[in-house]
Design a protein around this nucleic acid. Sequence first.
DNA 1: TCAAAAGTGTTTGCTATACACCCATGA
DNA 2: TCATGGGTGTATAGCAAACACTTTTGA
Lengths: 226, 226
Amino acid sequence: MAADKPYCYRYPHPAVTTDIAVFTIRDDALQLLLIRRRNPPFAGAWALPGGFVDIDEDLDACAARELAEETGVVGVYLEQLYTFGTPGRDPRERIISVAYLAMAPAATVAVQAGDDAADAAWFRLDALPPLAFDHADIIAKAHRRLVGKLDYSTIAFQFLPETFTLGELQRVYETLVDAEIDKRNFYRWALALEQIEATGELQRRGNHRPARLYRLTDRERVTYLK
Amino acid sequence: MAADKPYCYRYPHPAVTTDIAVFTIRDDALQLLLIRRRNPPFAGAWALPGGFVDIDEDLDACAARELAEETGVVGVYLEQLYTFGTPGRDPRERIISVAYLAMAPAATVAVQAGDDAADAAWFRLDALPPLAFDHADIIAKAHRRLVGKLDYSTIAFQFLPETFTLGELQRVYETLVDAEIDKRNFYRWALALEQIEATGELQRRGNHRPARLYRLTDRERVTYLK
DNA sequence: TCAAAAGTGTTTGCTATACACCCATGA
DNA sequence: TCATGGGTGTATAGCAAACACTTTTGA
């Protein structure tokens, strides 16, 4: 048994990683969190945060841990997206990656470099840098899933902080579908969902009438509509 | 290096498998294809068909291969479902399983035992035997996905053979939603999808008026509606 | 001629859309 | 008082649901 390779198996085993596509909405644009790789392969290139699954670690836990370690982002909604396993997608060895989709509220500024990441930053989805591995494919799939779930789930609510106004919610949807939405129809739709409730508080911000604040009746959960 | 464990790594690696939940509709009931395990663990128990991913094999290819080897079922629609990786889900070692959802036309009788399967058989979903591993969880998730995609995709069309009648299509939907559907509304809906076209042939079967045969305009594809 | 499934339209209610004005605030 | 975004109702069109009888065939 070679001293530097102490873990031996009867058949070849792939390595397994998680990669996380974290979206947010800032400056009325859909943005994605990327890290700059510190180590080869693709050292210096931008990539999704992620890393190897510990041998006794659940997949969801791995995604949350890697995201926290590499970017400082914690407590966001994570859902498993798809598993990418084409042979050759990583030049080192066979690596199968379980990709996750995540949404962070706009106020999530806590982006910091970690051990494996030389840097971490938000990029507009329409202006991404060249990406390592097959991460462009993962991002494309994540974006399709996000848009696809918009009108039959409450997934977009995960972009909002604890409390929010209906105007803020509408701006999230308008950014995601890249179109203007009628305010009265949208308010009626949002309230009819029975997924949000008024806090009773008002948000006083700017030279205009204060807005009612709402919260999700069940944060943590993404519910399916209709 | 131990002779019986020639594949060594610097860090522990999990094994990766695929498991396939193949549904069909027979005798007006939703049924699932299971194999009886020939080897431990759970030797003699029923389980989903599936097995280890070869080191240079794509995940989709592995699912198709394992399904063919263990049950003889080939050429069915397969889509990746979810990846199950809870530590301890397999007593042998850490095994991460990429689960697939598949639909087979009712005429798919080509069920045969294979190398790793002592037997293979269809079971009604409401009368499944005790299952190995966490396969009951996988099946539950597969069933939810199937039902969830019914009304915004053409996934249910994959239960039908090359050509079919509108009555057969309706019976598929009625079985899946476990409710009666109005024939006139259903026919109108099905034709308005623009996913099927009349072949011009008639199906003459039984003491009643012959039914027009239809085919999918694009077999192979599951399209998203609306 | 009988039994069995195929095939066919219209009415009704509901949901989605289009659309414009007043309100409360800070500067 | 003005600029800014918050808040509200109604009319219309398009889609979904309810509903029953005639047609064609084989036995």
